[in-house]
């Protein structure tokens, strides 16, 4: 399979990438926990965490992309995004997950679970967004 698509994902998903939390602590991307995101958002002056529930996953074995539909925030706003199948999302209590965890592990070395309908992903919004 072509690997060119991997170039479209940012480098910080590569296993071993160093991530700085809001309190200054450094962690490897594969070691991040749900609490790291929650605590960083609490410290942040302009960002807050939203819960985004996966409602639909559309993809195929022949496509590099998947269409994900989320219900975002307390209003459960419907948001659809097209992503590379290897794009990881952080799921509450579950960790890194993607539509094709085998591909994510192969390309980035990042241990991943299968992203499924019902999973609640961490997403961000602006605190001052009215």
């Amino acid at each position: 399979p072509p690997v060119a698509a991997s170039n479209q994902l940012p480098p910080y998903f590569m296993k071993g990438s160093i991530i700085q939390l809001a309190n200054g602590e450094l962690k490897r991307v594969e070691d991040l926990k749900t609490e790291d995101f929650i605590q960083s958002a609490e410290i942040s002056s302009d960002l807050k965490i939203d819960s985004s529930t996966v409602e639909r996953v559309e993809g195929s074995h022949t496509s590099s992309f998947a269409l994900l539909q989320f219900a975002v925030g307390e209003h459960r706003t419907q948001v659809s995004v097209e992503v590379l199948v290897e794009h990881p999302f952080f799921v509450f209590g579950k960790g890194w997950s993607s539509c094709c965890p085998e591909r994510t592990s192969q390309l980035f070395g990042l241990p991943c679970s299968k992203l499924s309908v019902g999973d609640v992903c961490i997403s961000l919004t602006l605190k001052n967004l009215k």
Binding site: D50, F70, T125
Partner: peptide
């Protein structure tokens, strides 16, 4: 002399998507 290579450090929020659309008032 071998200069030490700097290791990139990424902020935590780069890993998290912004999914919330603008909320109407």
């Amino acid at each position: 002399n071998v200069e030490p290579r700097s290791v990139p450090v990424f902020p935590w929020h780069s890993l998290v998507p912004f999914l919330a659309p603008s909320q109407p008032d």
